[in-house]
Simulated assay, not measured.
Amino acid sequence: MRFVLISILLLQPFLCLNAGQVAIIIDDIGYRKTDQHALTLPGKISYAFLPHTPFAKELALQANQSKKDVLLHIPMEASSGKLLGPGAITSDMDDDHINHQLSLALDEIPFAVGINNHMGSHLTKLQKPMASTMKFLKRHKLFFVDSMTTSKSKTRALAHVYGVPHLHRHVFLDNHTDADYIEQQFEQLVEKAKHNEFAIGIAHPHPETIIALKQLLPTLTKHNIELVPVSSLFSDSETSQIKLASAE
């Protein structure tokens, strides 16, 4: 009995270890004043803002003042030909034009710690424009989170070439705004975090999403999953290399 008790006490620190980490990025923020409701989510949520939209700068400042990770959500050319909005990068732009577009976005929100792509199913497959993007990120010490709108994305390989910290989205949480669907996707995110040690989810500032996440985020504790800022996945170069390998 005494041996069992001692064993339990010795094991106790290990029993408290996290089963994994989850980072959640809320993107598409900036067109609507109501996007501010996303900033009320509890915990270390990360936020990605569409450049040059009516409320992007104001809400990004609020997020930054609350010590939340702020990313630039850069519109990139889609295979569908959808309208991209201001600040977009397209395949017909040269290196200087891409640099100019990204510079304007960063000038508007200079405290951004990284970028992720809005759409981009065409552009992220192309070496030249994505190489220009990676060179910009390297100069400004920003990371890239690939929203993975195509399985043929070249961002990982190019990020490696240019020495840019890179990770990718594992789960879209709200492609449908049905509460049951969001819960199902959230559970998938948790399972990926347990399996890979971490997972990145992307969601949007839909009212249904905010309501669902306010209910779901507290459940991470029972799974022994830690909610972290996405930047923390890049906080240490050695750890980043391990995580990058895991993400592959």
Rank of each mutant, 00 (worst) to 15 (best):
I8P: 00
E238M: 14
A63Q: 08
G120W: 03
M93E: 05
A48G: 01
Q65F: 10
I115M: 15
L83A: 11
H160R: 15
F136D: 03
L123D: 09
A245F: 13
S147E: 09
L61Y: 12
A212S: 15
D28E: 10
G81Y: 08
Y31S: 14
H140K: 14
K138L: 04
I202D: 01
G201E: 09
L71N: 01
S240Y: 15
Q127H: 14
F111S: 09
Q185C: 02
Y181V: 04
T53N: 01
A48K: 00
G114E: 04
F55A: 06
P110L: 10
Q12H: 06
H100S: 14
I89L: 07
S232E: 13
V4Q: 12
F14M: 07
D180L: 11
R32E: 14
L41Y: 08
A56S: 15
F198R: 03
V22H: 02
S7D: 03
A159N: 09
L233Y: 11
L220E: 11
V113P: 02
Q62G: 01
A78P: 05
D178Q: 11
G85R: 05
T124F: 03
I98N: 02
L173I: 00
N99W: 13
H100M: 13
K128H: 11
E208C: 00
I115T: 10
S121Y: 05
F143W: 02
N117D: 09
L220M: 11
A48V: 00
V70K: 00
H166K: 04
L50H: 06
L233Q: 11
A193P: 11
L41Q: 08
T149M: 09
K135R: 15
T219H: 02
G201S: 13
H206F: 14
L83N: 08
A63G: 11
V70S: 03
I74F: 05
K243H: 15
Q62W: 08
A179D: 12
R139M: 12
E191D: 08
I242W: 12
F136Q: 01
G85N: 04
D96C: 07
D178H: 09
K222I: 12
R139S: 14
K152F: 07
G85V: 07
G201W: 12
L59H: 12
E77R: 00
L244E: 13
Q36I: 15
N117V: 02
S66Y: 09
Q215W: 02
R169D: 10
D94F: 08
H170L: 02
G30V: 09
I45Q: 10
H204K: 06
P54N: 08
A56Y: 09
P75F: 00
L244Y: 13
D174P: 01
S91V: 12
P54H: 11
L142P: 03
V171D: 00
D96V: 10
